[in-house]
Design a protein around this nucleic acid. Structure first.
Lengths: 149, 149
DNA sequence: TGACAAAAGTTCGGGCACGAACTATAAAGG
DNA sequence: CCTTTATAGTTCGTGCCCGAACTTTTGTCA
């Protein structure tokens, strides 16, 4: 069977994702950042780009359940990275935005991201990196189309 | 930057893992199997191969924290897939083994695994599959070595 | 306009996941 | 032996994550 058996693809994906997350967690810890876990990265990315933003936009964009996003917003608010305000246009809607403390993490996220991606790819030639990304994109396309049926 | 930007590697890994897990969850649901989530697959794989087995072996082999494995064993025991017994040789050790209900899932897991892996790879040529697995193994090796330092 | 449907958030219950603290047993070293 | 250290599991607290049920507000449409 050998060690490159495609049957192990799912285990490999899970393992790599987890190793990446551990690396990110370590990097956050090294910098003394509290309350942040890798899953919060997605929320920050949205809010670095545009802020304030309705919670519903983050729900749609992130793919998380809305109860999950509510919980993460609770955590980020508790630690002072984010604040909620009621939308004047739509009273159902809650607008979230980064506080100064939250905004200050932008370069940190950038740095950590580059560091971990560098750790992952190491000395891998760029052609192989691109080929890998193409293959992963193909997997995504395959399973997405399957699941639509 | 294009759509094959290596910077997106972590997001891609997370997304693919999640899509795979959703496919597995759907397949379990279709078959009316209750209480099982994708994360349990690892425990079953160990127990299909050898049973009974000390919980510590599963902890080591799975890479999960032991408190996590304790919790999953609780769930699987609650649903009747697994049973615990105290080891006669070592009173600290707890041996776990599959019940008949647990054993009966072996072909089901096999089937679901093949189905989802088939969905992922689709028509991808085998050389590309192997190349992909090699690249992923390289990523694992890279980040593992980094994290040891 | 008045009933019904849709959308935005929250709450709740349950499971995975972790680390830290704890108990009990086994192994090691003097 | 007896003390110390290591190992095996469990428990606890916290957070992510989900689906289901619920409230409030907005939209639809007859």
């Amino acid at each position: 069977m050998g060690q490159y058996n495609p049957r192990a693809i799912i285990d490999k994906l899970s393992l790599l994702r987890e190793l990446s997350n551990m690396a990110i967690s370590d990097a956050l810890k090294e910098r003394g950042i509290e309350g942040i876990v890798p899953a919060h990265g997605q929320i920050f990315q949205f809010l670095f780009r545009e802020s304030p933003l309705p919670l519903s936009d983050i729900v749609k964009g992130s793919g998380r359940a809305k109860s999950t996003v509510t919980g993460m917003a609770d955590t980020l608010e508790k630690y002072g990275y984010l604040k909620r305000e009621s939308s004047p246009d739509d009273k159902r809607s809650v607008l979230v935005s980064l506080t100064e403390k939250g905004q200050s993490l932008k370069p940190v996220f950038q740095e950590i991201s580059e560091e971990v991606i560098g750790d992952l790819f190491g000395m891998m030639p760029e052609e192989e990196q691109i080929r890998l990304m193409k293959s992963l994109a193909a997997l995504e396309s395959n399973i997405t189309n399957r699941r639509k049926e």
